[in-house]
Simulated scan of single mutants.
Amino acid sequence: MTNDLMTKKYILKPGKHQFAPGSAAVHSNHNTSDAEAEWYLEKYPHIVSLFAFPASKVETSEKEDEVEVKKAKKTKGVISLTSSSGGEGSL
């Protein structure tokens, strides 16, 4: 069981959870595969709060966000090379 949780991409917080509105709270780590979790997350994105993501995945996500911020800062001062006479992409 513990080894299964180590390899799962989507780990539910303890207890049983309801994914779809009007359905029973029957989902747990014992009966929900990563493929099912992905399907439900696509259909019901609000359920992301029911999942606990391992620290390594969160750290990776935060690092990716930092890279995006740095890229945005570098390109912030870029101006259009189109003339200011109204061409597409002008300021």
Results as ranks from 00 to 15, higher is better:
E42W: 11
I79S: 01
K43I: 11
G77T: 15
V69W: 03
P54C: 02
T60L: 12
Y40S: 00
K13A: 13
S84R: 15
K13S: 06
Q18S: 04
A52L: 05
E36H: 01
G89Y: 15
H27W: 05
L5C: 02
G89R: 15
S61C: 14
E62D: 08
F19Q: 03
G15L: 01
T7D: 03
Y10F: 11
H46S: 15
P14Q: 15
K13G: 06
K71M: 08
S61Q: 11
K13R: 14
L81F: 09
L5K: 07
Y10M: 03
E59D: 07
E36M: 09
F53W: 11
F53C: 05
A25R: 03
P54M: 04
N29Y: 02
I79C: 04
K70T: 12
E88G: 10
S83N: 09
K9Q: 09
N29E: 02
S56I: 14
S33Q: 03
A52H: 11
V26G: 02
F51P: 01
L91H: 12
Q18T: 09
V69C: 00
W39C: 07
S33N: 04
E66I: 07
A37T: 08
P21K: 14
W39F: 14
S28E: 06
F19R: 12
G77H: 13
Q18P: 01
K71Q: 08
E66N: 04
K16I: 06
G22K: 07
V26R: 14
E59I: 12
T2V: 09
M1A: 12
L12I: 02
Y44G: 04
K63E: 08
L81S: 10
K8C: 01
K8D: 02
I47K: 03
W39E: 14
Y44F: 10
E64Y: 12
I11W: 06
S61H: 09
V48G: 09
S28T: 15
Y10G: 07
P45E: 04
N31V: 09
A35S: 07
T82W: 13
E62S: 05
Y10K: 08
Y44W: 14
K70N: 10
E68M: 05
V78S: 01
A24S: 04
A37D: 04
A24C: 03
G15S: 02
V69E: 00
F19E: 00
L41A: 07
A37V: 08
K71V: 10
W39V: 11
K9N: 08
S23P: 00
S84P: 03
V67A: 04
Y44R: 08
T2F: 01
P54S: 10
T2L: 05
K16N: 08
A35N: 06
D34P: 00
P45K: 03
I11D: 05
E36A: 05
S84G: 15
S85C: 13
L5E: 11
H46C: 08
V48F: 11
V58A: 02
S85W: 15
D4K: 13
Y10I: 09
S83A: 13
K71D: 08
K13L: 07
T2E: 13
H17R: 12
G87P: 08
T75V: 09
L91T: 11
K71T: 14
N3I: 10
G87M: 12
F53I: 03
V69M: 02
S28V: 06
P21C: 11
G89I: 10
I47D: 00
M1R: 14
P21V: 12
T7K: 08
A55L: 03
A72F: 05
E64H: 06
K74G: 04
